[in-house]
Design a protein around this nucleic acid. Structure first.
Lengths: 361, 361
DNA sequence: GGTTCGAGTGTATGCGCATACATCGCGGAG
DNA sequence: CTCCGCGATGTATGCGCATACACTCGAACC
């Protein structure tokens, strides 16, 4: 780690100019073969690694794309990392408190898609999770580092996004297709829920259903709810005939609302606006000995992996999370290629996945 | 997205020099209060965002840390991202082929820890997954962008690591504590397996066990196997008395080895070197109607979330994956603060987590 | 034989910022 | 009243690279 060699060092060593060294990396075809070999030899001997900072400055583009998603640091203690003390290994009985929340799994998959697509297109990927208070500083910090930014819906205030968007393209992930100046990438929420609801209402012939929506400010949730209402209309059912409750997209919230609901009565079907809520509902049903799907049908939305392993396994609408990440990067690079583009919206296809909690009829 | 304003624009607008503008961001305390207000006002009006490239170049440090982990792109088709065609939503029966592999979950958690710790310390986090062939270009590319690099063990050839390490600190994650010049961060593999094995051998009194190891080139696996042997010694058992098989850390591999094993005979306990292998073993046992834990005890190692939801739920040794990520970043920043530091090794504590597949006695 | 042209290379400049150093103004010490 | 010290600000420079432009040289052309 002696001070890093630069183009100048390489140029001197190989007896060419710095321009040629630069060209060896940026446009190898324009350099004669033996010259290139000589330069590369010097590069290897010196251990030269091009400085992305200098390149970014000179080229006015960093070739980095940023991904901003909701934070999760509250759950991680701020204690220093400590090493193992001796060889003592505790033996504990369970680790339920350690359960990863499914939301993270969702973003992990989005991240994976973004990572893949970014590098494929020659971009590096920088990630940041929203820290509650420091969010503003974080966002502008990352904005100064990247050529474009993908942001999970509702994690950054619009005002701040607008500020950043003056400088770089911003794409909003998994939010509704709002009529704003940002690019949007999201899943086909409405049609997905409509199809699933129709499966319950028509194929199963179950009309006695309750719909558990998510937070009122979630555009995704609004679209799903609208899809549910479409399904009601499809079956000629009056909206007044079904109950629509509101929860908060968490498993705990799902448990709470299910407890309240069951205290009154037991419907034949419970449609949830996301998987976590549905898993919470399943928890309560199991505890009460209510059989799923025999007594009650339950469905979710998202397709998180936890739903695949639940008992019973959860019927849901699967979002293409990896594809969402890829599409976000795609949208950004498209805009970088053509800044004049009108704001775009990508809606990715979903799939209804039938599992035990609402099986195929 | 008109061309981004610079310090010069801000300086002119607020009637100060560029040095003062710079100071407002780098050392606000040295700027008089009213001056700072004036500058910040101009910043807001212009939509100024400091260029990380320029800052990095001038300051000779990017404040970015890189995280390099094994690739997964093979599983993602290279087809273009396509939008939803119409509102058609297919209804499918299962999505087992879409199952995320547990290895990714492992790295997702490491990533989460790294992300948290990095931003806490004022670093941005850049991620890259190893692309088989393009790996070398990828590694040097990212090396040119960051101040330090954390690499999952066995994903980058030593030679390449050494090349990069001439320029920036490199820490190896989850590999064995080799005696090389890199910093290492890993979990307490040996003691963890020893403790778990002793629980089986002594507390359960089960001596008729088989150990299923992982790939021979995995340093983690070697440590775990050594821990198992220690446990044998602890109980005064001869190593020749137990069978040690080798698999490949995958669920599929676990199934294969279990099938072969059961064709011969059925031991009372099967200890696996990682969770995925154990899950594969459980698959086979269930298919054959062999009860776990009544007929056979099964244990894993890692603590991936899939093991929490398996049937029966898997007893394992839980690695602190989030902490691993944090520790890696910690190690890098420590070395950046003091480049002269001798190579360090952090070993993080693990926990034996008893679940149904090998319950508390 | 001179001219043209293009491939290959060198020279010069600027990207936007941090920072060492210089400068300025002001209050207190002498 | 002068001098010093110090806080606040300005000036000048360089970080390492990409690239526009200039230049050289040999081959093709008339």
């Amino acid at each position: 780690m002696a001070k890093a060699p630069t183009v100048y060092d390489v140029a001197e060593r190989s007896g060419v100019s710095i321009a040629t060294v630069s060209r060896v990396f940026r446009s190898p075809a324009t350099v004669r073969d033996d010259t290139r070999q000589r330069v590369l030899a010097a590069v290897n001997e010196l251990g030269y690694v091009p400085s992305a900072a200098a390149r970014g400055l000179a080229a006015r583009r960093t070739n980095v794309i940023g991904l901003f998603f909701p934070g999760h640091d509250e759950t991680v203690p701020d204690k220093p990392v400590d090493a193992a003390r001796g060889d003592t290994v505790p033996i504990v009985d369970e680790d339920s408190d350690r359960a990863p929340d499914a939301e993270n799994l969702y973003f992990d998959e989005v991240l994976r898609g973004a990572e893949i697509e970014a590098w494929r297109r020659g971009f590096a990927l920088m990630v940041a999770a929203g820290r509650g208070n420091a969010r503003e500083a974080l966002v502008t910090d990352i904005a100064g580092r990247v050529d474009g930014l993908a942001v999970l819906a509702r994690t950054v205030p619009d005002e701040l996004l607008a500020y950043v968007a003056r400088r770089i393209p911003v794409v909003i992930l998994a939010g509704a297709q709002r009529a704003d100046d940002f690019d949007h990438v999201s899943a086909s929420n409405g049609p997905g829920m409509r199809t699933l609801a129709n499966y319950v209402l028509q194929d199963h012939g179950v009309h006695d259903v309750v719909y558990i929506a998510g937070p009122a400010d979630s555009p995704d949730d609004a679209e799903r709810l609208a899809g549910f209402r479409d399904a009601l209309a499809d079956s000629g059912l009056a909206e007044s005939g079904v109950r629509i409750l509101r929860s908060d997209f968490t498993r705990e919230g799902g448990r709470a609302i299910a407890t309240r609901l069951l205290a009154e009565r037991r419907p034949r079907g419970i449609l949830c606006s996301n998987d976590e809520t549905a898993l919470g509902v399943l928890d309560v049903l199991e505890r009460r000995g209510i059989r799923v799907p025999e007594d009650v049908l339950v469905t979710g939305f998202d397709g998180i992996s936890a739903g695949r392993n639940s008992r019973p396994r959860l019927t849901t609408v699967h979002q293409p999370m990896v594809e969402l990440g890829r599409a976000a990067v795609h949208a950004i690079t498209a805009r970088l290629d053509d800044p004049g583009l009108a704001p775009q919206s990508f809606t990715l296809p979903v799939e209804v996945v039938l599992r035990e909690s609402c099986p195929r009829v």
